[in-house]
Amino acid sequence: MNLLKVVGPVMVGPSSSHTLGALRIARFVYKFIEGRPEEVSFILHGSFSKTYKGHGTDRALLAGILGLRQDDPEIKNVYEIADKFNLKYRFLFEDLGDVHPNTVRIRVLKDGMTHEVEGSSIGGGDIKITFIDSVPCELSWDYDTLVIVNRDAPNALKSILSTIKVNVANLYLRRVNLLQERALTIIELDEPINNLEEIRKLPCVFECYFIRRDD
């Protein structure tokens, strides 16, 4: 654990795993879909579903999906902010199976597109994103992250990687749909990229999302 993490971070209370971690999972989704959704459902599992109000997890999740930062004093008033933006939100409770006790699945609707992301708050504000649009993964969001839906065809990955100019820290590639020839590639990078449009224009790339880490 580095010195800054021992001494910090700056956040809103009362608990790093129930507020900070929850907010970061939702804020990851906010950055993934590049803005506020019109509708959101938070599906809470385990300890999250039992104690979410007493720990302020509900407000942390709403704050994250609206793009608030982890140290924003407005987080406690987030229900009013959500109403101001006409955000439709729901909290649902479900057993998500053999997952971490502090797990939430977030379903969002934005510009007619639905996305679903699942993540766990694993302690001290650290998170693990475990599913993006039903593809399993394991992201810490300690890196700048690229999520790409690409053609499931030879040389697709090669052309993506040759377009990325910065160092790749971790890489996942999984087939999503064989018939539609679709695969999902997740790339964790050491630095932000500045040629996102170039990647988006590649013939093998259907969708491309870039989620910058918070400083």
Partner: peptide, 18 residues
């Protein structure tokens, strides 16, 4: 008490002991 009411704190070293 500010921490327990979702106030801004520095988790130094943790939120509960801030």
């Amino acid at each position: 008490e500010s921490n327990a009411s979702m106030g801004r704190i520095v988790a130094c070293p943790t939120a509960g002991a801030s």
